[in-house]
Design a protein around this nucleic acid. Structure first.
Lengths: 193, 193, 193, 193
DNA sequence: GATGAATGAGGATTCATTCAT
DNA sequence: TATGAATGAATCCTCATTCAT
């Protein structure tokens, strides 16, 4: 039956994707071979190409779905309104929440962003990250203008610290909410409190 | 003359090392081939092996000299004494100072630490990083005990944020001292100031 | 069909193995390149790695199957019982029989045993050869005790002469049974008869 | 002074030759690199080429001096006359005596004869070995004709067993005279005595 | 003579991808 | 749709030999 076939196809595609996610997270994108993924998925390497055009398509889907969610969440946070501080709080919470659901993507992005960014294939990653950076920077700059946040700290720089700190956190085994809490505390009030 | 030859050898070795540093920084360790380095150094690939046993030796030397300096600097900072806040200030300054002189090492460590850590060849990196982590954690914990620093933030987690933030900063084109200043301000007092 | 595919795979694997056997026999193990084997097998060099993990695996399989058969044959001979002389006769016959079916293995072992024995990968060869040496020595020593064989000749030394003589014989174009006959006559009664 | 220089040159040449002998014996010809020899000789690799045209020249000299001596000894033995048995006894003694002074040559010849024989460069080895084989065969055939030796054993085959047995013996740590004695006893009267 | 850096062809191995079945 | 053998370019590394100094 047509539907059953479609469902099967989709189910297997998801299995492969999930396996790839795990392996990329564990070993890194480049260190994981297509055959590794096929073996761990219970299919043969040739069959992978029924589901995905290439290894790049695979990681692209993993990364894109992370960035898509991230952008969606961030846009939602900003749309909700509120002062800069509470917005930042919700951005941080959103960041760790998304990371929790896309650990592999966070890890790969953290480890291999530089490498991937050089490939034309992944130009759209750069664009998406630029939008994210813009959202954060805008919030911070608004806080500086309103006097909520100190004026002597660069928004873009701060975002970068945040971005890398969040991704790095994917490597640590610690509940997302706890990480988010500590991170926010540090970000807003610093070690001196 | 003997001395001249030695000097030439050393000079060319340094050229190769510098070229490797640049390429590793730009493209990443794995994405840079031995031939890339040879080409850019103006020698044939086989000639590289006069200077370095292997590609791993090359990156090892780059990373080790960074971590060696880092440990030296950090030990000096701690030995100088002072309260936790001033110690942290000097640790941050030291971190950015060392990074400035070892940009490639910082970048590689940031991007490929996960991959390198899995190779037995680089077990010593893990050890060295553990010592560094210990130094930082101890300072933070001391500050918490003395009341200088807030007690609700985990020292090890904080160090990890710092470590990744600093390494990530190697990718940004911004003077080290400015980065250090912003970073320290953020670390101690947070965005709210 | 599944079976057909398996059969094809196996058949081609055997082709590669046979080609490797011939080339190793003709040129020696080290002097034969993986590409030589691939070319002579009608595949590309990369394809060899579907069938064999490495060049070492290839020679290992060739040598192991020889030694396995040799040990099986020798154990059978000893289990059959009989006096020392008749046992020796059957050992010699068995040696030349196995050599006839594993000429390449005999040649490689003869020419490159010293080299291979130094590689950890081939430690098991040493063990297997030790067992073979033990079987032969035991038979000779038993003959000396029973008075069938002269007491002034060292069993281990004799076995070594036999081993190298047999392997060397693989290089000569002469029917195995004739070789075995001449060899046994020489071994038991010497040139003087 | 001219003589002094010549003497020095000759002395160093001998050192290199001796070192090469030892390394070839220990590791085999192909497994020993020119640099290994240079290092162990206390010269630099480039300097080796003042003394020897090539690695092949080096092994050639080692092998040739062995075969030269062997031929000289064998010719002397035959020229001395005597019956076939005593001639054989002196041939065996001569073989082990020469082997004792040229262990490396014996080992290399044993392990890599097949490989070297394929190179045009070493065609003369084949010729020299043919002469040696001729000498031995002639003695054995003479013994068969005179009735001293049994007529059913092929002379050439016997010589081959001897040749390989002797070379193989170079690998065993056992005094040459003892080896010669055991070998001769086995050769003439066999295990049955 | 002596040096030792430089050469460059050639070695084994890997792996994303293709395609006939 | 699924298979899995085949591809072939690319990778790191080796080493006998040369040659400017």
């Amino acid at each position: 039956m047509r539907n059953r076939e479609k469902a099967t196809y989709h189910a297997r595609r998801e299995v492969v994707l999930a396996v790839a996610r795990d392996l990329f997270a564990e070993r890194g994108y480049r260190a994981t071979t297509v055959r590794d993924i096929a073996d761990a998925s219970g299919v043969l390497s040739g069959s992978l190409y029924h589901y995905f055009d290439s290894k790049e398509t695979l990681i692209d889907e993993i990364l894109s779905s992370y960035l898509d969610e991230l952008i969606l969440v961030y846009r939602g946070v900003v749309a909700e309104g509120g002062d800069a501080q509470s917005t930042l709080a919700r951005l941080v919470a959103g960041a760790f929440g998304a990371l929790d659901r896309h650990r592999a993507a966070g890890l790969v992005l953290h480890s291999e962003r530089h490498h991937l960014d050089r490939l034309p294939r992944f130009a759209h990653l750069v664009e998406r990250e630029a939008e994210i950076e813009h959202i954060w920077s805008a919030v911070i700059e608004r806080g500086k203008t309103s006097g909520e946040l100190r004026p002597d700290i660069d928004g873009r720089l701060t975002y970068r610290f945040v971005r890398d700190g969040v991704c790095a956190a994917a490597r640590w085994s610690c509940p997302a909410t706890e990480l988010a809490g500590q991170f926010l505390a540090l970000l807003l009030d610093g070690l001196r409190g």
